[in-house]
Design a protein around this nucleic acid. Sequence first.
RNA 1: GGGGCGGUAGCUCAGCCGGUUAGAGCAGGGGACUCAUAAUCCCUUGGUCGUGGGUUCGAGUCCCACCCGCCCUACCA
Length: 548
Amino acid sequence: MAATEDHSTTDAPRSAYYVTTPIYYVNDRPHLGHAYTTVAGDVLTRWHRQRGENVWYLTGTDEHGQKIMRTAEANGVTPQEWCDKLVEEAWKPLWQHLDIANDDFIRTTQQRHTDRVQEFVQDLHDKGEIYKGGYSGPYCVGCEEYKLPNELLPGATEDEKLCPIHKRPVEWLEEENYFFRLSAYGPKLLEFYAANPDFIAPATARNEVLRFVEQGLQDLSISRSTFNWGVPLPWDEKHVLYVWVDALQNYITAAGYGADPERFAELWPASVHLVGKDILRFHAVIWPAMLMAAGLPLPKRVVANGWLMVGGEKMSKSNLTGIAPTDLTSHFGVDAYRYYFLRAIPFGTDGSFSWEDFTARYTSELANDFGNLASRVAAMVGKYYGGTLPAATAAGAAEQAVVDGLAKAAAEADRKIGEELDFAGGIAAVFDFVKLVNGYLTEQEPWKVAKTAFGEGGSAAGSEEGQARLATILYTAAEALRATAVLLNPVMPATSAKLWDSLGAEESLGALADQTIATVADWGRLPAGATVTKGDILFPRLEEKPAS
RNA sequence: GGGGCGGUAGCUCAGCCGGUUAGAGCAGGGGACUCAUAAUCCCUUGGUCGUGGGUUCGAGUCCCACCCGCCCUACCA
């Protein structure tokens, strides 16, 4: 749901678990990488909601800058029209399609943002953190930016220098800009990183930032006067703000900075900024320095995720080897999509994925292990008890092993997903439990117990002992599924809802989303007598891969 | 050029401060079972840990060099 909600102030403000995605540059349509980060944030926030915490999940779009202006021109529309169209026709619909439960969607062209941004930079200007300076230096047309003299490569002649990225000659340009005194914050940042070792994750990202800041920071040019698609500087309207300075502030403007102090106190500082590793510096260096300059608290964590690689190449909008998210969801389904990338790739590292790997995991993990478990349990409760869940009256060591397995899985998933953002590890913990339950059923052989219980094929008319065992086995399996539905709900909400429904759990336990992580491992929550129905197959076998 | 990271079974990856026969999942092979989406469960084949040196009683694990790949280098998650 990409909708803005009114924030209720009836309760006393309590500190929120506030998670942000980057605001995405709307130069083009969303790709797999954007979806990856946004789904991760969604799973993280859904998990914390099920902990019963006060959660706020923000995403949005970054709409200023020269690149967007040019793209709009090339398409014969105004920049605002271009952004409006993409946001409404591409970005918001995709988040809705992927079941993203964001609480707000900020666009940097909204007045609630631009007004606050102007106040923020005016404040920095008043404090002497911003100064006017002429800038002259080597400029690379390819990069559209100034380079540092010492990073240039020698060219063909004595005077010629080359851009290290584009390997082409740079030009000497002069421009009048405003600068933020970023250089003054290097030592303070290093001090902060040292005092807050978890501020930047994973460790590789942290190392990269530390080495960079240790090399010394330069003041940051924060204005542009060569184009006008941006937020004007309040004291000099010939200049617009450098797009990143504008963009970063979305995290506070959306949280009520300068507009709603009570709400701002509740949300800020953010708990987690999720970012792609490419924009780590903005979030781990420039943004904290700006906040320090403004006298605001710093976010608690900046967590960088890696790239999705397809055949060794990164997914990006400039490299449209183009698998759109919907190409995958139309084949595998939305829940499998949400599951796959988080399960298959350790968060924070680059990960290669393939259609084949997705197919293999879908079949093995989702259809065979998980979907089939739900199917076989519901089928047996239907076959032996007419769909009414029996009570467990003869639990023993085997059942205790399932109870213990659940407690372990729940604790591990909570720690890994909720605290460490190790989605792959957390999901694996839940699926280990699914495997354990499959093994339990195979060992207990309820289909054989049923024969003695109901006297089928034997001389006896059935045994009470057998009936007690059968009831216990099926109850244990169903109760295990109840917990699995809760634990997987943040990852696969639609499928978990189907399972919840098939277990007849809502009648006695209420809505799935209201089930808490704290009580998920309390054994025996699903009451005997619940109506268990077979329902739809959770993960149907896949069709052949469509011709590409 | 500067900086960060990786190279371990066919594939995707674990292997913390160096210590007995290098692990998991999937794929491959064999068996059991039949409640279930021909699903499940058990067993199993498979690796000179990128290369070359070094330190050490002992190195995938530390040091050096090199090769290969990826990323950042100040507007692609």
